[in-house]
Measured scan of single mutants.
Amino acid sequence: EPLWIRPDAPSRCTWQLGRPASESPHHHTAPAKSPKILPDILKKIGDTPMVRINKIGKKFGLKCELLAKCEFFNAGGSVKDRISLRMIEDAERDGTLKPGDTIIEPTSGNTGIGLALAAAVRGYRCIIVMPEKMSSEKVDVLRALGAEIVRTPTNARFDSPESHVGVAWRLKNEIPNSHILDQYRNASNPLAHYDTTADEILQQCDGKLDMLVASVGTGGTITGIARKLKEKCPGCRIIGVDPEGSILAEPEELNQTEQTTYEVEGIGYDFIPTVLDRTVVDKWFKSNDEEAFTFARMLIAQEGLLCGGSAGSTVAVAVKAAQELQEGQRCVVILPDSVRNYMTKFLSDRWMLQKGFLKEEDLTEKKPWWWHLRVQELGLSAPLTVLPTITCGHTIEILREKGFDQAPVVDEAGVILGMVTLGNMLSSLLAGKVQPSDQVGKVIYKQFKQIRLTDTLGRLSHILEMDHFALVVHEQIQYHSTGKSSQRQMVFGVVTAIDLLNFVAAQERDQK
């Protein structure tokens, strides 16, 4: 057995438009009618409502009807409940999964919650491996369901041993009777949507819809739904939504950006999952974080739909894509998950301010006199920076000697690579993860907040409520011999709460 199987392995699926269902090699399930009293909570997966979006479509000038398939009504709160249950049931049916076995899954959280929910009911041990950027709410729900959680670096490539995929496979090879159901490759993922989600949409719309818009992560949702719609409703256009920084969209030119990270969760990847059939997507749109969270908040405030950030991405694209539809036509959007997962993220004004998705003037509360002053007023001194090749031991000596707790790590040209902190280095040394002679590049981390000289002290204040420091950066445009230009970030300084307090105190003292 291989040590790991690539999540982007070539698909062996034989589905073709027009091929009889009787030739399918898979076990198919028909939607079942729910009894009045459910035998367990797993029976509350599927049969989610279709809700008309009344205000947002009109606000953006849509002539067509805009409908939302509300997947956050599933038992675990997301569309991923469907595939989690289906993968477990299919693994039980073919004898792969037996009582007492362990389920391991690399996930952005929602599939993990679905699997942990099913594992709690069915009696399996469950280990979820997820990147650090995923919300604390997801972690809390997983723990409450009895799952064990392993976190991995957000910026690790999918084929790196440190990625959530790599760590999951390492655990599988170490733990007896453990299984990775593997949402990236498992046919049960798109089949769950082909058999149930798509049929529900067709039934709820009486077979009449002209466009379907869905955000894409593993691709199982859009693949399964689109294949069924292509068979039953061939005139329906399928629109895929991919965040900026991901590479799922086609044509490839759409993916060209210097951005590699994004805040919206559960969609987009740096590889093409095996289950994603991009041939059934008629057109791709890219979405960005700001519009995703703005539209998610709009869905909550104006439509009462308590959905997550990827739902915002989907609707932001839908109001663009559906401009081509006329009166009497219908566009369906998939709202994948609930706001429950993001209470401390985009639902929080403070978080939105820190990330730059909300401006101070958007909030009406009274601010102190210094709130709208610029960061450049602080008069920061030149920063202490270190090269990635310097040793951890030497870096600790320098920081202690100069009285700093942290320093930016830059390359020879001064471009920011990340940050090192005294606390992080000492804990890594004590844990045996690094040696004093190791290069400081081994303990770089990139989960820090950046701020510009033109940003306000109010925004800085919000950042420092949650973080010990902020890195002050400025952009530099560099022209190359080819005539092309590129933008790079340079370090201007490091600012802490002490710097802000000293500035405010000094100004008030001078005024007296």
Score class of each variant (00 low, 15 high):
238 I>Y: 02
240 G>K: 05
242 D>C: 00
242 D>L: 01
242 D>N: 04
246 S>A: 05
248 L>A: 05
249 A>T: 01
249 A>S: 03
251 P>D: 02
254 L>D: 03
254 L>C: 03
256 Q>E: 15
256 Q>R: 15
257 T>P: 04
258 E>K: 14
258 E>S: 10
259 Q>I: 13
260 T>W: 13
261 T>V: 07
262 Y>A: 02
263 E>S: 06
264 V>S: 01
264 V>L: 07
265 E>H: 00
266 G>F: 02
267 I>G: 03
270 D>A: 02
271 F>I: 01
274 T>I: 08
275 V>Q: 02
275 V>D: 01
275 V>T: 03
276 L>Y: 03
276 L>M: 11
277 D>H: 07
279 T>H: 13
280 V>N: 03
282 D>M: 05
282 D>A: 07
282 D>C: 13
285 F>K: 04
285 F>C: 07
286 K>Q: 07
286 K>S: 01
286 K>F: 00
286 K>H: 02
287 S>N: 09
287 S>L: 15
290 E>L: 13
290 E>S: 14
290 E>P: 11
291 E>A: 12
292 A>S: 07
294 T>D: 04
295 F>H: 03
295 F>R: 04
295 F>N: 10
295 F>V: 12
296 A>T: 11
297 R>M: 02
298 M>C: 09
299 L>Q: 05
300 I>A: 01
301 A>K: 04
301 A>C: 09
301 A>H: 08
301 A>L: 14
302 Q>R: 12
303 E>D: 10
303 E>A: 06
304 G>Y: 00
305 L>D: 00
308 G>K: 00
310 S>L: 01
311 A>H: 05
312 G>E: 00
313 S>Q: 07
313 S>W: 01
314 T>N: 06
315 V>R: 06
315 V>Q: 08
317 V>A: 03
318 A>V: 02
319 V>K: 04
320 K>M: 14
321 A>D: 10
321 A>Q: 12
322 A>Y: 00
322 A>N: 05
323 Q>S: 06
323 Q>E: 12
324 E>D: 14
325 L>Q: 05
327 E>H: 07
328 G>S: 14
328 G>P: 09
329 Q>Y: 08
330 R>T: 10
331 C>V: 01
334 I>E: 00
334 I>C: 01
334 I>S: 01
334 I>P: 00
335 L>E: 01
335 L>P: 00
338 S>L: 01
338 S>Q: 06
339 V>K: 06
339 V>C: 06
340 R>Y: 04
341 N>M: 02
341 N>K: 05
342 Y>L: 02
343 M>V: 09
344 T>V: 04
344 T>A: 12
346 F>Q: 03
348 S>F: 04
349 D>S: 11
350 R>L: 15
350 R>A: 14
350 R>E: 05
350 R>N: 10
352 M>F: 04
354 Q>E: 11
354 Q>S: 12
354 Q>N: 10
354 Q>P: 05
355 K>L: 15
355 K>F: 14
356 G>I: 08
356 G>V: 02
356 G>F: 02
356 G>K: 07
359 K>F: 09
359 K>G: 06
359 K>C: 14
359 K>A: 10
360 E>D: 15
361 E>M: 07
361 E>R: 12
361 E>H: 03
362 D>T: 10
362 D>Y: 13
363 L>T: 11
364 T>L: 12
364 T>A: 03
365 E>K: 13
365 E>M: 13
365 E>A: 11
366 K>M: 15
368 P>C: 06
368 P>S: 12
368 P>T: 04
368 P>D: 10
368 P>I: 09
369 W>M: 11
370 W>G: 02
370 W>Y: 06
371 W>A: 09
372 H>M: 04
373 L>F: 12
373 L>V: 15
373 L>Q: 03
374 R>W: 09
375 V>D: 06
375 V>R: 03
378 L>K: 03
379 G>Y: 11
379 G>C: 11
381 S>L: 15
383 P>I: 09
384 L>Q: 08
384 L>F: 12
384 L>M: 13
386 V>G: 05
387 L>H: 02
387 L>S: 14
389 T>E: 13
392 C>K: 09
392 C>R: 03
392 C>P: 09
393 G>N: 07
393 G>L: 14
394 H>E: 10
394 H>Y: 15
397 E>G: 13
398 I>D: 09
398 I>T: 13
398 I>A: 13
398 I>Q: 10
399 L>I: 09
400 R>I: 10
400 R>Y: 12
407 A>T: 14
407 A>H: 03
408 P>L: 03
408 P>Y: 00
409 V>E: 07
410 V>D: 08
410 V>Y: 14
412 E>P: 13
414 G>Y: 09
414 G>C: 12
414 G>H: 05
414 G>K: 08
415 V>G: 15
415 V>L: 14
416 I>F: 07
416 I>Q: 05
418 G>I: 01
420 V>F: 14
421 T>N: 02
422 L>T: 08
422 L>S: 11
423 G>C: 04
423 G>T: 06
425 M>V: 15
426 L>G: 14
427 S>N: 10
429 L>P: 08
430 L>S: 14
432 G>W: 07
434 V>I: 13
434 V>S: 02
435 Q>M: 15
435 Q>C: 14
436 P>V: 15
437 S>D: 01
437 S>Q: 14
437 S>N: 12
438 D>L: 13
438 D>H: 14
438 D>V: 15
439 Q>E: 14
439 Q>N: 15
440 V>C: 15
446 K>W: 14
447 Q>Y: 09
447 Q>T: 15
447 Q>N: 15
451 I>E: 03
452 R>T: 03
452 R>N: 15
453 L>Q: 11
454 T>G: 07
455 D>A: 14
455 D>L: 09
456 T>I: 07
456 T>V: 15
456 T>K: 15
457 L>Y: 15
457 L>C: 06
458 G>E: 08
459 R>D: 11
459 R>F: 14
461 S>C: 13
463 I>E: 08
464 L>E: 07
467 D>L: 08
468 H>P: 13
469 F>S: 12
469 F>Y: 14
469 F>T: 07
471 L>M: 13
471 L>V: 14
473 V>P: 07
474 H>A: 05
475 E>Q: 13
476 Q>G: 10
478 Q>K: 14
478 Q>Y: 12
479 Y>C: 13
479 Y>T: 14
479 Y>E: 11
480 H>C: 13
480 H>W: 06
481 S>V: 12
482 T>Q: 10
482 T>W: 07
483 G>R: 14
484 K>R: 04
484 K>P: 13
485 S>W: 14
486 S>K: 13
486 S>I: 15
486 S>E: 11
487 Q>I: 15
487 Q>W: 10
488 R>G: 15
488 R>F: 15
489 Q>L: 15
491 V>L: 15
492 F>Y: 15
492 F>C: 11
493 G>M: 03
495 V>C: 13
496 T>K: 08
496 T>C: 07
497 A>Q: 10
498 I>H: 03
499 D>E: 07
499 D>C: 08
500 L>C: 14
501 L>Q: 01
501 L>A: 05
501 L>S: 03
502 N>C: 08
502 N>L: 11
503 F>S: 06
503 F>M: 13
504 V>A: 13
506 A>D: 13
506 A>M: 10
506 A>G: 15
506 A>F: 15
507 Q>E: 15
508 E>A: 13
509 R>F: 14
509 R>K: 14
510 D>L: 11
510 D>E: 14
511 Q>F: 11
511 Q>W: 10
511 Q>K: 12
512 K>D: 10
